[in-house]
């Protein structure tokens, strides 16, 4: 008997992957939202799978201090920044509840797999955020950082370090250079996330990652796929492989 606690972002990650009955197969009898009012359940381990936001960390610290559950297994969809981890630790020490936190994991799962060969970074209105003339620098940086973190999660999951190509002078270049920096910073550490994959007989050939900018790739915007799925997407709207009529 285990409780799974999610936030809207991680709920969208899990939804296309596992159905409720499949969650039961893995002992998850209850799945709840972090932001909702929840009753304490004693003698039950809780698995938290949430985004690495400050708000989430604060809420988790509160849950641990109550305590809402017996033990806490904390999983963040992307790496938890050091200051947030320290804040979580100090809050738990303050309320003398640190022993209830079993483990804290960085999961590198910050993307939504919709099909075998299709994923989404699940960043709504990202085009507007990047192209709005009134957008602040911090908003653009935040949007780019979100994309970089999502693509980095994909690369860690695949265990590959790609060669990156992009057009010059746009959002795609910003994403590409930040991603390159992120990869370089990570690869200098000895036991990095790509070591295991390369030792397990990973390919010596590096894949090619092409980042396109919709402003320059105008053909994409006017090209329409003539299959059932794009038709449904355009007529009714397709979200997380689901259609709401």
């Amino acid at each position: 008997f285990k409780v799974l606690v999610l936030d809207p972002f991680t709920r969208d990650i899990i939804a296309p992957l596992l159905k409720v009955n499949e969650l039961r197969k893995y002992g998850i009898t209850l799945h709840l939202m972090l932001g909702a009012d929840r009753q304490p359940i004693s003698d039950v381990p809780a698995i938290y799978f949430v985004a690495q936001t400050e708000q989430n960390v604060k809420r988790i610290a509160l849950d641990v201090s109550v305590p809402l559950y017996d033990t806490f297994h904390l999983n963040f969809s992307s790496p938890l920044p050091r200051p947030s981890l320290e804040e979580l630790a100090s809050e738990c020490v303050k309320t003398d509840s640190i022993s209830r936190v079993n483990k804290v994991y960085d999961q590198y799962l910050g993307f939504v797999s919709l099909e075998k060969g299709l994923f989404s970074l699940a960043q709504p209105r990202s085009y507007v955020k990047l192209n709005d003339p009134a957008a602040k620098d911090t908003d653009v940086e935040q949007a780019v950082a979100g994309m970089v973190e999502g693509i980095f999660s994909v690369l860690v999951s695949l265990g590959v370090v790609p060669i990156i190509r992009c057009p010059k002078g746009g959002a795609a270049e910003m994403v590409a250079s930040e991603l390159e920096k992120r990869l370089r910073d990570h690869l200098v550490t000895r036991n990095n996330l790509f070591t295991e994959a390369s030792q397990a007989g990973g390919s010596f050939q590096r894949p090619l990652l092409c980042l396109f900018d919709r402003n320059f790739e105008l053909a994409v915007a006017v090209q329409h796929g003539w299959t059932y799925q794009p038709l449904v997407h355009e007529m009714i709207g397709l979200n997380l492989n689901r259609v709401t009529v």
């Binding site: 992957l17 893995y26 381990p45 960085d106 797999s113 075998k116 999951s157």
Partner: peptide, 19 residues
């Protein structure tokens, strides 16, 4: 298969195994 890799990672997490 990226989707399968993500499913495996999620299942590992639900089974309380380390990543």
């Amino acid at each position: 298969d990226l989707r399968q890799k993500q499913i495996d990672a999620v299942v590992k997490m639900l089974n309380l195994n380390s990543p």
